[in-house]
Design a protein around this nucleic acid. Structure first.
Lengths: 115, 115
DNA sequence: ACATCAATTCGATAGTTGTCGAAACGTCGA
DNA sequence: TCGACGTTTCGACAACTATCGAATTGATGT
């Protein structure tokens, strides 16, 4: 199967990133754990690709637990994991948080008059 | 100095609704359960104050479970519960979803150049 | 080849929680 | 007062999961 073009790179324009119900569920579950959310915040606040070691130091949890959380964030589609030799670098997957954010906002309707 | 303005009640204009870390955690945990999220969606989609009976029919879960989920959404600060006689009416608490949404969006930084 | 280090996998455990049936509570109409 | 109905509480169970130590894998440098 010949690939038409490499899409792992920075595509010029924005992409809507449509989320299915199942994806939303998975993402919310991934965000629900405090340690995992903190990890995501750490990744977001870092320049961009955060090393596992830095993450481990920032969260003060066992390596095994960190690895578990990373996999959860990855399988839920929230982050990308790039492996380079014996290191792993974490980065926020673009568009996903925006999509979730937009959907949540859409749930807040114009306040009902009969309140 | 002090006395910028008291904003505890339903101010006509916008309300910032600042969320603490603990509140964010609680809200995300409340949203993480699929049935609970579906309940919130149902409330949001209804005119506004949704009766428990309607919710029960929409979700097809036992009354006890529904009551449990309602309490979770309420204690997390996502919904208001107004009681009227033997009925209970659910409505989305204004500002909370917007605040969470804004925070999530703020985590998505400008994509890192070294990707 | 060997030792070292980063990261993952495995196995186990403790705590959490979604679910429901049954009982209880409160309200309303007869 | 009584019974019917909506909702909540209680108790229990099953499933899930966050956590870690120990062992493993894989890559790097000597």
């Amino acid at each position: 199967m010949a690939s038409t073009k490499p899409e792992t790179k920075s595509t010029p324009a924005a992409r809507p990133v449509r989320l299915t119900r199942a994806q939303r569920s998975a993402i919310l579950k991934a965000l629900a754990d405090p340690k995992r959310f903190e990890l995501l915040e750490t990744i977001a606040r870092s320049q961009c690709p955060l090393g596992c070691t830095a993450a481990h130091e920032a969260l003060s949890i066992a390596p095994a637990t960190l690895s578990h959380h990373i996999k959860e964030l990855q399988t839920s589609g929230l982050i990308d994991v790039r492996r380079e030799g014996k290191f792993a670098f974490l980065s926020i997957k673009p568009g996903v948080l925006e999509a979730l954010s937009a959907y949540l906002q859409s749930l807040s309707p114009t306040a009902c008059p009969t309140r």
